[in-house]
Simulated assay, not measured.
Amino acid sequence: MPIVVRLLSLFVPLLLLLVSGCSGGEPRRGHLVVGVTSDLRVGVDVLRLHVIRKVNGAVVRDEELFSDGASPFQIPLEIGFSDLEDGDDVDVEIEAFGGTSLPLVVRTAGSTIRAGRTLLLRVDLAAACAGSMAPSCEAPQTCTGGVCGASYVNPAMLEDYNAGWSKGKADICKPNDGPPTLLVGKGQADYLPTSDYDLAQIEAGPQGGHHIWIALRMKNLRQSGSITTLTGHVDELDLDINPFTVIFTFDPDEGGFCKLYGLRFQIDGGTDIEQLLGKTLLVKASVKDKDGDVGTAERWVKLSSDIL
């Protein structure tokens, strides 16, 4: 029942206080709240939810929620797992239905109970996961934000539950399941992973400068409005490369990550390009989003000895 779901979420913090306040040592039980958000409209796009809750693989609750009736469900929605043993695995499967018997979106998610804590597991029912254009994800992966990602989230990556968790717009690149992550790669038309001291081909630019192509992969930073900055240093010449700063929108990538490619990082500036051929360059990247969160990363590259 929808009322039961909402009441359960209200009682979770109280239950935690009661359990943790008992004498006899450290608390042995914990709680988890699945926080459901969506850019689909309840009563228009989504008319019914089928929600299955499991603990250690066993179904503990199977319910249908309807958008009409005396107590229709609303999104954001809280689905609670209360007063469970430390180490218990919890899973939820949500099927969202429109006007047909086939689910519009299927979303799975899971984590593990931690004693003395009430964890928040964020789950999105994204429009990008609905319809014929949505990817087909094989278990244990699930569709999130239009790409396939892991359904299980390590509890160490989860935040503590708070009543205002649903405030603010959901962001495909920022599921808040851990700290900001940033990786430096290469690529003009896509993100390609690199290792330290991989070759970076120098190319002549259209306006007379020379550049290498940089690509980035990140998670838990805003998709749009984030400030991306590249800097560099050449040890052999004790030379700092002029900073390169842009505000570009990241594209969704696999595994819940987002990517930005085709960053034309000019390396010569006021330096003769001939001096840079074959040198090693430390590329440093930072992405700062509108929330003030920052991800940083660096990568050594070996500049090519020729110019394309």
Rank of each mutant, 00 (worst) to 15 (best):
Q141D: 02
Q141M: 02
T142S: 00
G145Q: 07
G146Q: 08
V147G: 01
C148G: 01
G149H: 01
S151W: 02
Y152E: 09
Y152F: 15
V153T: 15
V153L: 07
V153Q: 06
A156N: 07
A156Q: 11
M157K: 09
M157A: 05
L158C: 08
L158D: 09
D160A: 04
D160L: 15
Y161K: 01
N162C: 08
N162V: 06
N162H: 14
G164C: 01
G164R: 03
W165T: 00
S166V: 07
S166R: 05
G168Y: 04
K169E: 15
A170Y: 11
A170D: 13
A170W: 12
D171G: 03
D171Q: 03
I172W: 00
I172L: 14
I172M: 04
K174S: 12
P175N: 02
P175K: 00
N176H: 13
N176D: 15
N176M: 11
D177Q: 14
D177G: 11
G178Q: 06
G178E: 10
P179V: 01
P179L: 02
T181R: 15
T181Y: 10
T181W: 06
L182H: 03
L183T: 15
V184L: 11
V184T: 08
V184K: 12
G185A: 07
G185V: 08
G185M: 07
K186R: 11
G187C: 06
G187L: 05
G187T: 05
Q188V: 15
Q188S: 12
A189F: 15
Y191M: 13
L192M: 13
L192P: 03
P193K: 01
P193Q: 00
T194A: 14
T194Q: 11
T194C: 14
D196K: 09
D196N: 15
Y197Q: 13
L199K: 09
L199H: 05
A200L: 09
A200M: 04
A200E: 07
Q201P: 03
Q201W: 07
I202T: 10
E203H: 11
E203F: 12
E203P: 02
E203S: 11
E203A: 09
A204V: 04
P206I: 10
G208L: 06
H210K: 08
H211A: 12
W213A: 15
W213H: 13
I214N: 00
L216M: 09
R217E: 07
R217S: 13
R217H: 07
K219D: 04
